[in-house]
Design a protein around this nucleic acid. Structure first.
Lengths: 222, 222
DNA sequence: AAACATTTGTCCGTATGTATA
DNA sequence: ATATACATACGGACAAATGTT
């Protein structure tokens, strides 16, 4: 209900982007709670901008599935259920598996080396108990593969799904990450498949690399 | 006749939706050509509404990838290349394969019968040389499976991809559909896999059911 | 370099609709 | 059933930003 008054003003962004970024952060980190009602005039006042860019930002967040508007009636943060993990991870796993499939066909030796380096830093971060760094390297690993696959639709859909997953973790797990070194091994297996240009294996392991955390999270909650 | 209580208000379509629907149609059928520059004030005048709902519609179409805006500069219809088929179909195939996978686990006998009936009408439409009807039944077949899979993310991403494919066909093929009965057989094979609860087979055939037309279209153009 | 033309971005008042008393 | 309160939807004017002369 209370909307924070303190936020950094990056200033170089358009009012719309400013509103979008801020609202998305507030939704993902749970500041704006699931089911909460929004008032564009209130948000406009809080962010120091007019209602128009607020409405535009709300519309974008609605497309992403974070906000639901009932035209002429009300605007609310979408609800989120524990079972939603089962809706979020599978399409992400499928898309990332496809990306691995495509990437394995065109990846260069140099790119493989980069992935190896990233995965090593990932492993070290886990060993050193640095969950934030580990998460960053994990994201880097996956986004690098997406970049190689070079498909804007995969990129867009993946990032939307990952944002929802991030929100899910904040809301239900307080973003409390349990790091497993299983992922390091899977990443290595994918890299191995890349060097062998074994696209089916790369895709299969990539899928598992996303479905395994889904099951971990799901069983943790039940 | 009983009138559904939960029927969302027969809202006269808002100006925004009117603009969105019209612009999307014009983009997909090629009335608005790839690379064409848009002027929101002109569109507003043409559609008899103000710039605000036009801008909102443009924003939605930008998220879908049909329009590109360069803030403060210009707004254009996105370009489209022949090679884009190779970016569009694979993620769609992956997502639909996932839907088939999920559906096969929970589909009922009654639903299987419905699919059989739809596929039979599809076959008849092809035999009778009715491409529009055939397309409708094909869409019905796939959307029914998506409905069973019951995953809003798959739904949303699939429909966006299908709209882009439709645009592609209009722009490059004048929507000239070549109907092959291969698809009927694939549909039947998917139904068979459903009855056997063979999710892997259902997914595999579903993927082929989308990748085959991709290759047909691609080789037709090269 | 600066003023201009053009197009998009923002503001805010009002209309429209929806829910509630 | 009607009136009223309220939130969103829309319209039109103005501001800001960009490219050009």
């Amino acid at each position: 209900m209370p909307i924070p008054k303190n936020y950094s003003s990056p200033t170089r962004l358009s009012a719309k982007k400013k509103a979008f970024n801020q609202l998305q952060r507030w939704i993902i980190d749970g500041t704006l709670e699931p089911g909460e009602k929004l008032y564009d005039s209130e948000l406009a006042e809080t962010l120091g901008i007019s209602r128009t860019p607020i409405r535009e930002a709300i519309q974008l967040l609605e497309v992403q599935g974070f906000i639901e508007t009932f035209p002429g009636r009300e605007t609310r943060i979408t609800m989120i259920k524990k079972k939603d993990v089962l809706k979020l991870y599978p399409p992400l796993a499928s898309l990332q598996a496809l990306a691995a499939d495509e990437a394995s066909k065109i990846i260069t030796l140099e790119q493989v080396e980069t992935l190896k380096a990233v995965n090593q830093k990932y492993e070290e971060a886990i060993k050193n108990g640095q969950p934030f760094d580990a998460m960053t390297f994990d994201e880097h690993y996956h986004s690098f593969i997406l970049k190689i696959a070079d498909n804007p639709y995969i990129d867009r859909f993946s990032s939307t799904l990952q944002l929802h997953i991030r929100r899910f973790k904040y809301v239900f797990l307080k973003n409390d990450l349990t790091l497993k070194s299983d992922s390091v091994k899977e990443h290595a297996a994918i890299i191995k498949a890349f060097t062998d240009h074994n696209s089916k294996l790369a895709a299969s392991v990539m899928s598992q690399n996303w479905l395994r955390p889904m099951n971990e999270v799901y069983h943790l909650l039940k």
